[in-house]
C-alpha cells in the first residue's frame, strides 16, 4: 500500500513537472501546425533540439540570457523557413517526409564530431554550462519548499523556480495562441486546413499563411526545447529522436487537436499515466515474481509500445481527442 502511494505521488508529481510543461508547449506549437492549419510536421523534435542548442550554446559562450532565448527562437524560425519554402506548395506528405528527415539530420549533426566543440557531440551539452545564468534569474529565497507531498528545492534543476518559469511560459504561449487562432488570421488557417483551393479563390495567399503557421509553431517548438533542456541536459539522442516527436503527437491528439487546452491537458494526462505505468510495472518487476519474466529494461520497451498503440487507437477511435469537437475535426488534409 505504501508502495502504491509512493507510485501514485510520483505520478501525480508529473502533472507539474517541467518536462510536462515542455511537452505542452511543443504540442501547442504542433497544434498551430496540425490542429489549425493541417500541416503534418513530423519533426517537432528537430525544432526542440535546435532551440535547446541555440539557448545552451549562446550561454556556454557567455552570451546574455535574453540573447539566448532570442537565438533559440531564431533557430526555430530559420529551420521552419528552410523546410517550409520548398515543400509547402506540394501535397501534405512531402512536408511530413522532409520534416522527419530534417529532424534526424539535426540529430546527426548534433552528435557528429564535426561541431563537437560547440555541441558536445554525442554526449551532448551538460546542463552546468548554461544552468547558472538561468538560476540567477530566480526571485525565490534559498531553501526548499513543500506543497503537500511535493517537495522540491526553490532554485535549481528540478526546482520550484523551474516549474514556475515553465508553466508561466505555457500560460503566455497559450494566451498568445488563443488570441491569434480566434482572430480572422486563425479563421484563414482553418479554411486552409479544410480546403486550400477555396481559400485561394477568395484571394488569400495560402502559401504565405502556411509558412507563417509553420514558422510560428516551429518557434514555439524551439522554446519548448529550451524548457525541456533547462532542468536536464541537451542530449541529441534523447531530445532529437523520432520518439520525442511522436510523443508530442500523442500528447496533442490525446488532448484534442484544434482546441486551446488540449495540448496542456494531453501533456498532463500523458505523463501522469506514462509515469504511473512505468513505475508501477518497474515496482512489479523488482518486487514480485513478474521480474522473472519482465526485466526493468523491458518495462521501458513495453511502456514505449503502449504509447504507440495508444496513438494508433486514438487516431482510429477518437481522432478528436478528449476536448475536441468531432464536427470540427482536424483530419482533413489531403
Amino acid at each position: 500500500m505504501e508502495e502504491f502511494l509512493r507510485i501514485l505521488t510520483q505520478s501525480a508529481g508529473e502533472i507539474l513537472a517541467p518536462t510536462t510543461a515542455a511537452f505542452a508547449i511543443a504540442a501547442i506549437g504542433l497544434n498551430l501546425h496540425f490542429g489549425y492549419t493541417g500541416l503534418l510536421n513530423m519533426g517537432q523534435a528537430g525544432f526542440m533540439l535546435l532551440g535547446a542548442y541555440g539557448f545552451g550554446i549562446t550561454l556556454t559562450l557567455g552570451g546574455p540570457i535574453w540573447l539566448a532565448f532570442l537565438i533559440a527562437i531564431a533557430a526555430g524560425v530559420v529551420f521552419a523557413l528552410l523546410l517550409g519554402m520548398p515543400t509547402l506548395q506540394l501535397r501534405g506528405d512531402y512536408l511530413a517526409i522532409v520534416t522527419i528527415s530534417a529532424a534526424e539530420i539535426v540529430r546527426w549533426f548534433g552528435r557528429s564530431t564535426l561541431w563537437q566543440e560547440w555541441t558536445g557531440g554525442a554526449s551532448g551539452l551538460q546542463g552546468r554550462y548554461y544552468k547558472d545564468p538561468f538560476h540567477a534569474l530566480s526571485f525565490l529565497p534559498e531553501g526548499r519548499f513543500a506543497l503537500g507531498p511535493f517537495e522540491y528545492i526553490n532554485t535549481g534543476s528540478d526546482s520550484w523556480f523551474t516549474r514556475i518559469f515553465a508553466w508561466g511560459l505555457v500560460a503566455l504561449v497559450l494566451i498568445f495562441v488563443w488570441l491569434i487562432t480566434r482572430s480572422p488570421w486563425g479563421r484563414v488557417l482553418k479554411g486552409i486546413r479544410e480546403d486550400e483551393d477555396a481559400v485561394r479563390a477568395l484571394g488569400k495567399s495560402v502559401y504565405s499563411y502556411k509558412l507563417q503557421a509553420l514558422v510560428l509553431g516551429g518557434a514555439i517548438g524551439a522554446l519548448a526545447g529550451v524548457v525541456y533542456a533547462i532542468p536536464l541536459a541537451i542530449s541529441p539522442d534523447s531530445m532529437g529522436g523520432r520518439t520525442m516527436t511522436f510523443f508530442v503527437w500523442t500528447v496533442l491528439l490525446l488532448g484534442g487537436a484544434a482546441t486551446v487546452f488540449g495540448p496542456v491537458l494531453g501533456s498532463m494526462i500523458f505523463f501522469t499515466a506514462y509515469m504511473f505505468m512505468r513505475t508501477g510495472m518497474r515496482a512489479l518487476s523488482e518486487d514480485t515474481a513478474v521480474g522473472n519474466v519482465i526485466s526493468t529494461t523491458q518495462v521501458e520497451y513495453i511502456g514505449g509500445m503502449l504509447v504507440g498503440i495508444t496513438l494508433m487507437c486514438l487516431v482510429i477511435f477518437r481522432p478528436q481527442g478528449i476536448l475536441g469537437n468531432k464536427k470540427e475535426l482536424a483530419f482533413n488534409v489531403r
Partner: peptide, 8 residues
C-alpha cells in the same frame, strides 16, 4: 485581423 502581426 488576417495579418499575423495585428491578429492578436
Amino acid at each position: 485581423g488576417e495579418n499575423l502581426w495585428l491578429s492578436w
